[in-house]
């Protein structure tokens, strides 16, 4: 569903790569957790996958579409929720959702059905007619999530989705990720919350200093580290070895 081959990114003026020759494959129908310390390269990777940054080298393929040669088809397969959704403050929530619906070509009846479902689930139905600027951070996050799911994307990408969410909303987010995968889609998300990754993910990848240092199921990671019974936190700390901050 998502394939990165030798993807490299160095920011202008930096002396080291933010993402260094990254190879990664996210399979259809799985929840993939992308972990790493601050500045490891998680957000840079995600921004390259969704087209917000151009890779210096390498190839990104989304649902069979090469992002460089066929960006529109690749983007059509993605639903993206950034860590801090920057939505038009002077639009109402519904106006924003209608923009997304039109851009992705979601027809009226389907749009209504899905909006009823997600807005009801997020308890946003009564607020969706209000201006986005009046929304709390969590409400904006839920609105962005609704927009990202409106076209039922084969690949759902979330950057730090749990930041700033109350426990109930965080629970909802997790439910939605599971529901999305059960429908045959794929979820790729970055997080610092290792418990969430441990509970939710089919596989995890750990990136440090721009390089993928571990990738697999929890059992595979434990076997690779030779620590049976170890939890993700211990594995993470051991693998990343309290490395210094790096360019993100």
């Amino acid at each position: 569903m998502l394939k990165l081959e030798g993807v490299t990114k160095r920011y202008k003026g930096a002396s080291v790569n933010a993402v260094d020759n990254l190879d990664l494959e996210v399979r259809p129908g799985e929840i993939f957790g992308f972990l790493g310390p601050n500045g490891a390269g998680k957000t840079t990777t995600i921004r390259m996958v969704v087209g917000l940054l151009a890779a210096d080298r390498g190839r990104i393929v989304v649902n069979g579409h090469d992002l460089a040669s066929d960006p529109i088809a690749a983007k059509r397969s993605i639903g993206f929720v950034p860590d801090n959704p920057n939505l038009y403050p002077k639009l109402t929530g519904l106006e924003y959702l209608n923009l997304i619906g039109d851009v992705y070509g979601v027809d009226g009846p389907t749009r209504k059905r899905r909006l009823d479902h997600y807005l009801g689930m997020f308890e946003l139905t009564s607020a969706v007619g209000d201006l986005v600027q009046s929304f709390s951070r969590g409400m904006k996050q839920k609105l962005a999530l609704t927009g990202a799911l409106l076209h039922e994307p084969p690949l759902f990408i979330l950057d730090e989705p749990m930041v700033g969410l109350d426990p109930r909303s965080a629970h909802l987010f997790k439910s939605i990720m599971r529901e999305h995968v059960h429908q045959g889609n794929t979820v790729f998300f970055s997080t610092h919350v290792l418990e969430v990754a441990e509970q939710l993910c089919d596989r995890v990848g750990i990136i440090n200093k721009g390089q993928l240092i571990a990738c697999g199921t929890m059992d595979e990671l434990r076997r690779a580290s030779g620590r049976a019974g170890s939890n993700l936190e211990k594995l993470f700390l051991e693998l990343t070895d309290a490395g210094g901050d790096h360019e993100e």
């Binding site: 002077k90 639009l91 923009l99 619906g101 909006l115 007619g129």
Partner: peptide, 20 residues
Amino acid sequence: MRVATMRNRLWTLYLTLLKD
């Protein structure tokens, strides 16, 4: 809740940016 019927995406984008 009034959900819009599908419109041309360029037109929608223009209207949205105009409103904003």
